[in-house]
Deep mutational scan, measured.
Amino acid sequence: MFKRLMMVALLVIAPLSAATAADQTNPYKLMDEAAQKTFDRLKNEQPQIRANPDYLRTIVDQELLPYVQVKYAGALVLGQYYKSATPAQREAYFAAFREYLKQAYGQALAMYHGQTYQIAPEQPLGDKTIVPIRVTIIDPNGRPPVRLDFQWRKNSQTGNWQAYDMIAEGVSMITTKQNEWGTLLRTKGIDGLTAQLKSISQQKITLEEKK
């Protein structure tokens, strides 16, 4: 169930391209415009997507990853294993993690069937560096609404905000991946996880038929 919630949630996290980005210092504006741009692209490019579902990787690479804190999220997933990894191991892992996100997020976007969304009203940021933004996803086919909290983090150097995690039903996506990959990290280390991520990233994206 959580895996499905995570995939549905990713439908609204794909941010804007650099040329049309919203105010990078306001995570609420980023979330709002990102959702609108993403849904528009999914709707307008269905012919290309249906002809070649792996085209979704391109959308992810162009529109999402430049505005997601990939390395920060990847380091959180590694936890204690990050500090013990060599620079070469980290570089290989982050490259594999990025390719994994292209496949995983692309597969999530393949679930698009006309969903709509509501974003919580903007709250004062103050001096906060981590801000959760509640998004409610509404399914046109009558499924119950899904309420999610996207975690946005302020870059201490640039002042810009980027998304790095999502919490559904009190469970963090980062925590879920830590639990899912924990045994592999304990037995085969970061190299074993890197190899698995490379394998997963090679899987073809498949479209979910409308139910």
Rank of each mutant, 00 (worst) to 15 (best):
V8S: 04
G182F: 04
A108R: 00
K204A: 13
G79R: 02
I205D: 13
Q48H: 07
G182S: 13
A21T: 11
L65R: 04
G114W: 13
Q62S: 10
Y112G: 04
G192Q: 12
P47E: 10
E209W: 08
D139A: 13
A14M: 14
K71S: 05
T20M: 11
A108K: 00
G106C: 13
P124L: 10
A18D: 15
P47L: 13
D127W: 15
D40T: 15
Q157I: 11
W152M: 04
M1Q: 00
S17Q: 14
Q203M: 06
A21D: 06
A163H: 14
Q46C: 07
G182Y: 03
E169K: 02
M31H: 06
D139S: 14
P53N: 15
Y81F: 12
E208P: 14
E33R: 05
T116M: 15
A19F: 06
V68E: 14
G170D: 02
S156I: 03
Q62A: 12
G74W: 00
T175Q: 04
D32W: 05
I59S: 06
L207I: 15
A96W: 08
A21F: 05
L193G: 14
G142R: 09
Q118F: 10
A22P: 10
L197F: 14
F94L: 10
K188Q: 09
M173V: 05
Y55G: 09
A73S: 08
T20H: 14
R90M: 03
P145R: 06
E180V: 04
V68W: 00
E33G: 04
V8G: 05
F150K: 00
E63F: 00
A108H: 03
L10M: 06
L207F: 15
A18E: 13
R143E: 01
T187R: 11
F2P: 00
T136V: 13
M7N: 01
E208H: 08
Y82V: 02
W161C: 05
L5A: 02
E180H: 02
L109A: 15
I137F: 05
P132V: 12
E91F: 05
K37I: 08
L184H: 04
L16G: 04
A9Q: 01
A35C: 11
Y100P: 00
I59D: 01
F97V: 08
Q203K: 10
E63A: 03
K204L: 08
P132L: 12
T58C: 12
A95K: 08
M173W: 02
I205F: 15
P132S: 10
N44Q: 14
E45M: 06
Q103L: 15
A88V: 11
T38S: 09
K3R: 03
S201C: 14
T183S: 07
L78S: 03
T206G: 13
K128N: 07
Y81A: 15
Y82K: 00
A92Q: 10
E180N: 02
Q115N: 11
T116W: 09
K102S: 12
K204W: 07
A75P: 00
Y117M: 08
L197D: 02
A104L: 10
I130S: 03
N44T: 12
A120M: 10
T25D: 11
E122L: 09
K37Q: 08
A110D: 14
M111K: 01
I119P: 08
S201K: 07
L207A: 15
Q69N: 08
S156K: 03
A9P: 02
R50T: 09
P145I: 05
Q48C: 05
L207R: 12
M1W: 00
L10V: 11
L185W: 03
A19Q: 02
K177P: 00
M6S: 01
L65A: 05
L193Y: 10
P132C: 14
Q36P: 15
W181L: 14
I138T: 08
Q69Y: 01
L65Q: 11
L5E: 00
Q103R: 07
T86I: 06
F94V: 07
T116L: 15
V70M: 06
A120L: 11
I130G: 01
W152C: 09
D61I: 02
L148A: 08
K198G: 11
N141L: 05
Q123Y: 05
P15Y: 13
Q118C: 13
Y67L: 03
A35W: 13
A110W: 04
L5M: 06
A22V: 13
A22C: 06
A163M: 13
K3E: 02
E122D: 13
L193D: 01
W161T: 01
H113Y: 11
E180L: 02
Y117W: 09
F97W: 08
K83A: 09
N44H: 09
V77M: 12
M6D: 01
A73L: 03
M6T: 03
L56V: 14
I174R: 03
N141Q: 05
T194H: 08
V12M: 14
V68R: 00
I13W: 12
E99V: 11
E63H: 02
V77T: 09
G189M: 03
M166I: 09
P140R: 14
V77K: 00
K210F: 11
F97K: 04
A85D: 04
L78H: 02
D54F: 04
T194N: 11
R41E: 03
V12Q: 03
P87M: 09
L101P: 02
K198W: 13
W181M: 15
Y164S: 03
L16M: 11
G159P: 10
I130E: 00
L193A: 15
A9M: 10
P124N: 08
Y72D: 01
G106K: 00
Y55L: 08
T158M: 07
Y28C: 07
G74A: 04
E45W: 02
P144E: 03
A88Y: 12
P124R: 12
A21V: 10
Y81M: 07
F94G: 09
T176E: 00
Q69V: 02
D149K: 01
D149N: 05
V135W: 09
T187A: 12
Y93F: 10
R147I: 03
D127C: 09
Q107S: 09
I190M: 10
L193Q: 05
E169Y: 00
L16E: 03
F150L: 04
T38A: 06
M173E: 00
E208N: 15
G159R: 08
A51V: 12
Q118D: 07
L42K: 00
Y117V: 06
E63I: 01
I190D: 02
K204R: 07
K29M: 13
D54R: 06
V135A: 04
D32Y: 06
Q46L: 12
D191H: 06
P66Y: 04
I200C: 13
T158R: 11
E169R: 00
D40S: 14
D61V: 04
T158E: 03
G106L: 02
N179E: 03
N52E: 14
N52I: 03
I190Y: 05
P27D: 00
T116Y: 05
N179F: 15
K128G: 09
I49E: 06
R134M: 02
Q46A: 06
L109I: 05
K198Q: 10
E209D: 10
K154H: 10
E45T: 07
D54Q: 07
F150M: 15
M166Y: 01
A96P: 10
V8K: 02
G192V: 06
T86L: 09
F94I: 09
M6W: 06
Q162T: 03
L101I: 15
D165A: 02
N160Y: 10
K210D: 08
N52Q: 11
G189F: 02
A195C: 13
P53C: 06
A73D: 11
P53Q: 12
T194M: 06
T58D: 09
K188F: 04
L125I: 11
R134D: 00
G106N: 01
D61W: 02
Q151Y: 11
L56F: 07
